[in-house]
């Protein structure tokens, strides 16, 4: 049996972006957007669940950093088979770039205890940077295997992983502990389990219990069985100077809405005459033919 931590991120659904998406300081206005479980983090969760299937007794802990509402994806993970969830939330984290984020996550991982395997999605759809996984591994001083398509085997000391590269693949073996990032070609995450949904739908974080006047009993139940834990910057012994905007080496200098330099387009209909005219035009210009 193995101890696994899965890093997950709640991301704005960038397919449905509105006008209020950005704040004046150039950071993302998450409140204005629908939020989802980052797709490749679900692939990472599935790779963890497959290990748990093979080695009963394996525990899977989900770790996320974000606003209070990010607890939604922790519950989503519980429904699908994770054992516990940790939410890192603090104003001090606001505006963190990838380096400050990976620092905060690495502090939380040390606090939970370094597991055998850390899994994370290759990248999040709101930034596509693919940086946080490798940076967390570096901060923890452990090896990394990026772009995992499959975890072929795990034994007491090593893990074998199939990596998807731009043009081809690699089979690699690493010692444990290791951080593995999941590629979108890794197995799709299993759906919610109905029994687990009933079991965990009332699992809440401290802030959620404070913010809602939810029934007293639910809070009671979870104070004896805390599946979801909420931590602030101080709880994970992090250095405030390395967090948030101040702890981020990269600064957003400027954001611009892009205005295309419109060309004078010639609009054609789908009528035979128009299409034949265009083809003749292209041939006479030697663009085709």
């Amino acid at each position: 049996m193995y101890k696994i931590i899965v890093l997950a991120k709640q991301v704005p659904d960038t397919r449905n972006v509105g006008k209020d998406a950005m704040k004046a300081d150039g950071t993302v206005n998450r409140a204005a957007l629908p939020a989802i479980f980052n797709p490749e983090d679900l692939n990472a969760l599935e790779l963890a669940l497959l290990i748990k299937d093979r080695y009963p007794g394996t525990t899977i802990v989900l770790l996320t950093m974000g606003p209070v509402r990010a607890a939604e994806i922790l519950r989503e993970g519980l429904y699908r088979g994770a054992d516990a969830g940790f939410l890192l939330t603090d104003k001090a984290f606001a505006g963190s770039d990838t380096l400050a984020t990976s620092y905060a996550l690495s502090c939380a991982i040390r606090k939970i205890g370094l597991p055998d395997i850390i899994l994370a999605g290759r990248q999040a759809i709101d930034g596509d940077t693919a940086q946080v996984g490798p940076q967390v591994a570096e901060k923890l001083g452990i090896p990394q295997i990026t772009y995992a398509e499959d975890i072929l085997s795990v034994d007491n000391r090593t893990v074998r992983v199939k990596r998807r590269l731009e043009r081809g693949f690699e089979l690699v073996e690493s010692v444990l502990p290791v951080l593995v990032t999941a590629h979108s070609t890794a197995p799709e995450c299993r759906p919610r389990n109905a029994r687990r949904l009933m079991q965990f739908k009332r699992a809440t974080t401290l802030s959620e219990r404070h913010h809602s006047a939810d029934d007293y009993l639910a809070a009671q139940t979870h104070s004896t069985e805390p599946v979801l834990t909420e931590w602030c910057a101080k709880d994970v012994n992090s250095d405030l100077l390395q967090l948030g905007l101040g702890g981020s080496p990269t600064k957003v200098r400027q954001v611009e809405n892009i205005v295309f330099q419109a060309k004078e387009s010639k609009v054609l209909s789908a009528a035979d005459d128009d299409i034949e005219w265009l083809i003749q035009e292209l041939i006479s210009q030697h663009t085709i033919g």
Partner: peptide
Amino acid sequence: FGGNIVATIV
């Protein structure tokens, strides 16, 4: 961010 903006980072 979904291609809605272009950012300059320093």
